[in-house]
């Protein structure tokens, strides 16, 4: 039964991969990457059960967090072009957009 779940997750990962390769916009790719991360978390869980040792769920936990932080970091970087926190609040740093960001 874990095999069935794992197969579904792997196929879904392949589909997300197609979206990440096809794009077309930057945000499609970020979305596909985020969705791929969620599926990796699920895959790690089901893989642990499949091999009979579900002790490695800590990694799934870590992935769930890294995936979230990574997505936010990428988006923040694209919006403000920096990781530095402005002391006057984020609104003080005007968002800068390049030509390539829209598409």
């Amino acid at each position: 039964m874990f095999g069935a779940a794992t197969a579904a997750i792997v196929i879904a990962m392949a589909l997300a991969l197609i979206r990440a390769c096809a794009g077309p916009s930057l945000y499609d790719r970020v979305l596909a990457g985020n969705s791929f991360g969620t599926k990796t978390v699920l895959l790690l869980g089901s893989m642990g059960f499949l091999s009979g040792r579900p002790d490695f769920l800590d990694i799934a936990l870590l992935y769930a967090l890294i995936n979230f932080v990574g997505t936010i970091a990428i988006l923040k970087f694209f919006r403000y072009r920096t990781f530095a926190v402005s002391m006057d609040g984020a609104a003080a740093v005007k968002p800068v957009f390049g030509e390539g960001d829209r598409q």
């Binding site: 800590d58 769930a64 988006l75």
Partner: peptide, 23 residues
Amino acid sequence: KLGFVGAFLFFTSPVATHAIAHA
């Protein structure tokens, strides 16, 4: 642990989706 994974996904996925959509 599975409960923690579920809770993290439940609370972080809408934030991530909103962040992408908002951006």
